[in-house]
Design a protein around this nucleic acid. Structure first.
Lengths: 252, 252
DNA sequence: ACCCCTCCCAGTGTCGGACACTAACCAATG
DNA sequence: CATTGGTTAGTGTCCGACACTGGGAGGGGT
C-alpha cells in the first residue's frame, strides 16, 4: 500500500506481454488506431515465441483493447461498448441476479436516461426514436418483436442522452430485464397497450424537451413493469440470457 | 432477424472452441466449479492442436468464465465482479468520458446505493462501515488516503445494499470519479470536513435505517462533489485511471 | 499519364512435436 | 497411520513448418 506503482507482472510470459502492451496503451504510448508490429517481430522484441505472443494478443483482443479490422492489420482500439455490455450481461445472468435487483436499478437508470434524452436529443434522433416507436405500435400482439423493439427503444433513448457512462451501465440491465415480458405478457392485462402508452408518453416528453415528464414516465414505466413481475411471481426469479452472445465484433 | 438461433461461429478455430465452451457454460452443461479436460484432450476432442485450444482458453479466461485455481486445475467460474469493473473502468477512461457524465450517473447511483444499504444493512456491516468512516476521519488532511478511503466507503455502502446489479454498475463510476478529489481538494474550502460530514450523515442514516435521509445525503454528497468539479474547472475534463490494472485475479 | 490486372510476398492461422518443470497421485517405508 | 519419496500427467514455452490470403509491386492496356 505504500508503493503506488506495483509491477504486478505474474510469472507467465504471455501475461507479461499482455500487461506490457496494455500498459503502453493506457499510458498513451499506443493510441487507438495505431497498428501493432507483426507477431513474429513482437516475438523477437519480447524474446518469446510467436505462440506466446499470440496468447498475449488473444487476451488483449478479448479485452477489446486491440482488434483486427482486416486479417492483415492488428490495431489498437477503444473497447467497443457492446463488448462491455455483453460481458456484464453474461456475468449477471451467471451470478443469477433477480428481477428485484434489476428493477431496483432500472428504477433510477431509466428515468435518468429519459431525462438526459429530453435534454439533449437532436431532431434527427427524435425522428429516429419516433420510427422505433411506430414499429412497436405496429408489432402489437407479437411478443418476440415487442420485446426486441422495447429493448431497442430504451437503448436508443439512452444513446440519445449522450452520456457514455450511462450506456454501458444501463444496457445489461435492460437486456436482462425486458426478457421478463415473456412471462409477464400472458398474465398482465392490456399488456401491449400499456407498453405502448408508456413509450409514447416518454417519447412525447422527449420531443417537448420536458425533462421532468420524461423522467416521471420512465419511472412509471418501470413501476408498471415491476407490478407485472410481481403478478407473474418473478420477484426473485433469475432472468435468462437474451440470446447466445458472440465474440465476433459488429461493424458499426 | 427471422432466425432466433444464429450459429455465428466465426471462421477461426480458436474462436469456435471458445464459443463452444462458452455455450456449454451458458447452457448449464458446464457449471461453475466443474473442471475442464486437459488441453491435449480437448485438442483431440475438437480436432485441433493444443496451441489452438490454448488460444481459445485464453479468451475464456480473459472473460472470466474459466480460471486456474491451481496451475493444475482449470475450472468454470462465474466472472468475478472486480474483473467486470476493471474492464469497464479502463474502457471508460479510454473513451475519455467527462466528469460531467460521471457525476450525472453518480447522482442517481449513489443515492440508490445508500438507500438500499439503509434498508438492508446488517449490524455487522454497519459496524464495518463505521470503522471505515473512522479511518477516513483519522486520515484528514492526507489526500491519497482520503481518496482511497472515500472510494472504499462508497464501495462498501453499495455492497451492503446487497444488490448484485448495482455493484458492477456503480463501481467504475466511483473509481473514476473520486480520483477527481486530487484536483478538487486544493481549490475547495473545508474539503476534508465536508467530506467527513457527508459520510457521517450517510452512515448515521444507514444506522437509523432512514432510507430517505440516506438517499438525500448521498445525493447532496455528489452535488457537493459536482460543485467542487466546477470550481476546479473539471466539468469536461477526463478522469484518469486509478492505477495500473492487472489481470491477475485477486484471491478473495 | 492513368487505370486495371496479375503476380508475389509477408503475415496469419494452424499444425505437430519437443522439453523443462511441478503439482498431484501413489506406493513403499517408518 | 502418517511420512516420504518417486512417478506422472499436464502446463508453459519453444521450434519449425505449411497453406492461405490480403495488399502492394509491377507490368500491360487505353
Amino acid at each position: 500500500m505504500s508503493h503506488p506503482e506495483k509491477p504486478v507482472q505474474s510469472g507467465y510470459a504471455y501475461q507479461k506481454i499482455a500487461e506490457e502492451i496494455e500498459a503502453q496503451i493506457l499510458r498513451g504510448d499506443l493510441k487507438p488506431g495505431d497498428l501493432l508490429p507483426g507477431e513474429t517481430e513482437m516475438g523477437s522484441l519480447f524474446g518469446v515465441t510467436r505462440s506466446t505472443v499470440r496468447e498475449g494478443l488473444r487476451q488483449l483482443e478479448t479485452d477489446g483493447l486491440i482488434h483486427r479490422p482486416s486479417p492483415r492489420r492488428m490495431e489498437v482500439t477503444v473497447p467497443p461498448v457492446d463488448l462491455l455490455t455483453t460481458r456484464a450481461t453474461r456475468a449477471m445472468a451467471l451470478m443469477k441476479v433477480t428481477f428485484r435487483e434489476l428493477v431496483e436499478v432500472a428504477m433510477v437508470m431509466e428515468p435518468l436516461a429519459a431525462r438526459t434524452a429530453a435534454e439533449r436529443a437532436t431532431p434527427e434522433e427524435i425522428e429516429d426514436l419516433q420510427q422505433l416507436h411506430a414499429a412497436l405500435v405496429a408489432s402489437e400482439g407479437q411478443l418476440e418483436e415487442t420485446i426486441e423493439l422495447d429493448e431497442k427503444f430504451h437503448s436508443r433513448v439512452t444513446e440519445i442522452g449522450h452520456n457514455r457512462v450511462l450506456g454501458p451501465a444501463r444496457e445489461p440491465v435492460g437486456l436482462l430485464l425486458f426478457r421478463g415480458f415473456e412471462h409477464i405478457a400472458p398474465v398482465a392485462t392490456n399488456f401491449y397497450k400499456r407498453q405502448i402508452e408508456a413509450h409514447s408518453n416518454i417519447l412525447a416528453a422527449i420531443r417537448d424537451r420536458d425533462v421532468e415528464r420524461a423522467s416521471k414516465w420512465a419511472r412509471m414505466h418501470i413501476e408498471d413493469f415491476w407490478r407485472g413481475v410481481q403478478l407473474a411471481g418473478l420477484d426473485d426469479a433469475n432472468p435468462v440470457l437474451p440470446r447466445p452472445v458472440s465474440h465476433t465484433e459488429g461493424v458499426t
